[in-house]
């Protein structure tokens, strides 16, 4: 671990000023950043601790729910507004990590967490994400946890977050602050596919910070479910996870939202499957059909091809739970 400077941010503006300098990074809960620093994957010169900034609020707005970037994962998952309006988000959060980690982890940090790809973590291995141009270790290596959608020749890593899968399904918006003021971006557009620049996980520009997310009100609260399949019952990253939200009226699906985790470089929205479900009856048969539609462009590698069989099963199962059929 390299020696580094540590300072506490006094304001949002001072944070934005500080992170404009290369080598300076925000630290929130530290649960991802510190691990990466210990392994030598990242070596900032200076850390700006933003935990004292007033960005912890969870409030109702005219159109929905606002959650500050520093709200803790544990707090969000137990918040009564969240449980009432967006229970899917609570379920997704609780499926992630462990209670101890969720007590430290923040909403902003969760969005910004890096991939868990072993080749990214081991500095003696090639990795285009960590060191562009060195190659992708996972492509011809141990890729059991890796992407089946949207990968590139450069990178087949997945984004590991559960929370983000919930937020992607719920049409959330990210609020970003930078030198030029605030801007908003659709949550599903926040993370990137790897393409030729796997070193960039998302569209946050240099010198910008996340200050919160907004989730619009919806009719999904009664019929939503987060299902995560993993190698043990808790404290493991998803092999495949699915966030399913349905607006059902008289047995007919008015609207559906589906997103998957553990399958792509970003939370993977299943737009085609959603469309296929709209107007249909909430039956197991229809869920299975939608699941098949979702798998159209899937591509497996040596160790992760099982996901092509697992993912549709998890989609159908999550939808059954959401519809109350289980």
């Amino acid at each position: 671990m390299k020696q580094f400077q540590y300072t506490r941010a006094v304001s949002q503006q001072s944070t934005i000023d500080a992170i404009a300098k290369p080598g300076t990074k925000i630290i929130a809960g530290g649960t991802n950043l510190v691990d990466l620093m210990k392994r030598g994957v990242t070596a900032p010169d200076k850390l700006v601790d933003i935990n004292n900034l007033p960005l912890k609020n969870i409030t109702s707005t005219k159109t929905g729910l606002h959650i500050g970037a520093l709200a803790l994962n544990s707090v969000v998952s137990e918040n009564s507004l969240v449980l009432q309006k967006q229970p899917l988000l609570s379920m997704a959060l609780k499926a992630g990590a462990s209670p101890q980690l969720r007590n430290m982890a923040t909403v902003g940090g969760n969005m910004m967490q890096r991939t868990r790809c072993a080749y990214f973590f081991d500095v003696s291995m090639p990795c285009n994400k960590r060191e562009p141009g060195t190659g992708c270790g996972a492509m011809g290596g141990y890729n059991r946890m890796h992407a089946i959608f949207g990968a590139s020749e450069q990178c087949i890593a997945v984004h590991p977050s559960d929370m983000c899968v919930g937020l992607a399904a719920l049409d959330a918006t990210v609020i970003i602050a930078g030198k030029k003021g605030e801007r908003r971006i659709q949550f599903i557009d926040f993370h990137r596919l790897p393409g030729d620049h796997p070193e960039q996980d998302n569209h946050l520009a240099m010198g910008e910070m996340i200050i919160g997310v907004d989730i619009p009100d919806n009719n999904f609260a009664k019929n939503s479910y987060y299902l995560k399949i993993r190698d043990r019952q808790s404290y493991a990253f998803a092999l495949v996870s699915v966030a399913a939200a349905l607006d059902i009226s008289n047995g007919i699906i008015k609207q559906a939202r589906l997103a998957m985790g553990g399958v792509a470089h970003k939370p993977w929205r299943l737009f085609d499957a959603e469309k296929a479900l709209a107007g249909k009856a909430a039956t197991e048969e229809n869920f299975k059909q939608a699941a098949q539609i979702a798998m159209r462009d899937a591509k497996g590698y040596e160790y992760n091809s099982f996901k092509i069989k697992m993912a549709p099963a998890v989609i159908a199962e999550a939808l059954k739970h959401a519809a109350g059929l289980v």
Partner: peptide, 16 residues
């Protein structure tokens, strides 16, 4: 080289 040499990737049972 071992690729899962840590407690996040090498799984041992948890209470659940």
């Amino acid at each position: 080289r071992i690729v899962n040499n840590n407690f996040a990737d090498y799984h041992v049972p948890v209470n659940a």
